[in-house]
Write a protein that binds this DNA or RNA. Structure first.
Lengths: 266, 266
DNA sequence: GCTTGGCGTTGACATGGGTCAATCCTTCTT
DNA sequence: AAGAAGGATTGACCCATGTCAACGCCAAGC
């Protein structure tokens, strides 16, 4: 579970303790996911307001961040690690509504209490804000509100894609769609880092290898399947050459175009 | 299909032709769904801006309003009738992502082109706005943006409920959940009308009778089922007394609490 | 009043994916 | 190095739901 953290023995860039409210030594200024998150739209002045109400928070792999029904007093920005959001039925059936990666924001779809639970899949670093304070900042930061609306728009469109997947796709189509989602997500955040001037060792980077930070059970609960079906479908995809499984948490995709056709039912 | 329109031989309250940009004789002022729609947050001044860019539009039952992939040049407010939004797979499989009722807004989850198709289920009256103009109004109407964000939030939460339904519920649970959705939606919009001071003949109103404006095929495509399964599940629910079917488009629910338990898998 | 065409329902049968259970890795522990 | 434990995989079987096809009902048109 702590596998993909081996490269990050510590979360290097940020101090582990309380964050200073002044921007000068605010972690936001050096935030590694600034360009990808809701903060991307803000100028220094505005960012300072957010920094003033943000606190870093560290969560170990496997632990719960909050549960559906808890009073929704805090919002979060994921800055490192992977999180799953999920809902439960009374008898324990689980639906994962999304996986969150660095740059993602938690707190759009909420009323007074959280409408889903959140659990850390890997070790996670979060930027935590009191909801009441966030609301105050929001009220005087129209650009932030605008940005949130656009984020919400995107999530809504994604949610609709997921409905199509859950309601109408076969197991095979679901799994392939999922891999393509992950690949596109990865591409996009890579691109954002490059645009921000980061130096990525583009040499030893394989375009077609996708990380699967989560286990089979989480994949199954995301796609409306069982672990057994996920497993069987993977070996089937492996057998017909659509993918290779490097290990349990890494797939190499064999040709995005043909995979895209599988995902659409062609 | 035009059945539930029989009470509305004409869409009485609004003029059928172009709308005057002045608020005085703007239809918005007399709009029957003003309190339930995005417009609810606006004062007269702001409403005038919206009115100035709005045009009424009438669509016959069964016709398409736009298709997935069309350039998204217009946004809409539903003022009368029922609409389905849906996505298609290449081979024709269909997923209905939502049914829209008076007061609902179309245009949150879009990029440059529509990410779903929209079709009128009954005769429909829409309030149509050019997207570019709407953006201009939005830029100077923070309250509108705030309102949109809150609408988007709610839709996201609903979308997540729908994922749980599609991914993890049985046919029986799906259908009952759907009926409860419709009932709650109806209650809410009734309440909004009452709050707005409307005189509803509360005498001959049956709390537990729910209208199903859409056909079995649309219900099936919304719930990730087939028409046959919908039909069979309905007769099963009828048999064990959970519901009564008054006619093809009206159900009477037998006890919301017990239905809520069925919907949650208890 | 007959015909036509859309739905909706029902029946018989097929199957994708679920269930239950055994086995196989890995990785961690000692 | 052996053991233990938590995934992941595989197999055998089952069942909820899909598929295919017949039939019924009702409203619209001739």
């Amino acid at each position: 579970m702590a596998k993909q953290q081996s490269k990050l023995p510590e979360f290097a860039p940020l101090a582990r303790d309380e964050i200073s409210p002044a921007l000068a030594n605010s972690p936001c200024a050096a935030c590694t996911v600034r360009q990808q998150s809701v903060c991307a739209s803000l100028d220094d002045n505005e960012l300072e307001r957010l920094a003033a109400i943000s606190r870093a928070m560290y969560v170990a792999a496997g632990s719960t961040i909050f549960n559906e029904g808890d009073p929704a007093d805090y919002l979060f920005n994921v800055t490192d690690g992977v999180i799953k959001l999920y809902k439960l039925l009374a008898d324990g059936r689980e639906q994962v509504t999304g996986f969150l990666f660095p740059g993602d924001f938690i707190g759009l779809a909420l009323k007074d209490s959280y409408s889903y639970s959140a659990e850390a899949i890997s070790a996670v670093r979060l930027c935590k804000m009191k909801r009441s304070q966030f609301r105050d900042v929001l009220a005087v930061t129209p650009r932030l509100e605008h940005r949130l609306l656009s984020v919400a728009s995107n999530e809504l469109a994604q949610a609709q894609d997921q409905m199509l997947l859950l309601g109408r796709k076969t197991a095979r189509e679901k799994i392939v769609s999922f891999f393509l989602q992950l690949a596109e997500r990865r591409d996009k955040s890579r691109q954002a880092q490059i645009n921000a001037g980061a130096e990525l060792e583009s040499s030893k980077f394989d375009e077609d290898v996708v990380e699967l930070p989560m286990g089979r059970a989480d994949i199954a609960d995301y796609l409306g399947l069982t672990t057994e079906t996920v497993s069987r479908t993977l070996t089937q995809l492996k057998t017909d050459g659509s993918i290779q499984l490097l290990d349990n948490h890494q797939v190499r995709l064999g040709g995005r175009e043909s995979l895209r056709e599988i995902a659409q039912g062609l």
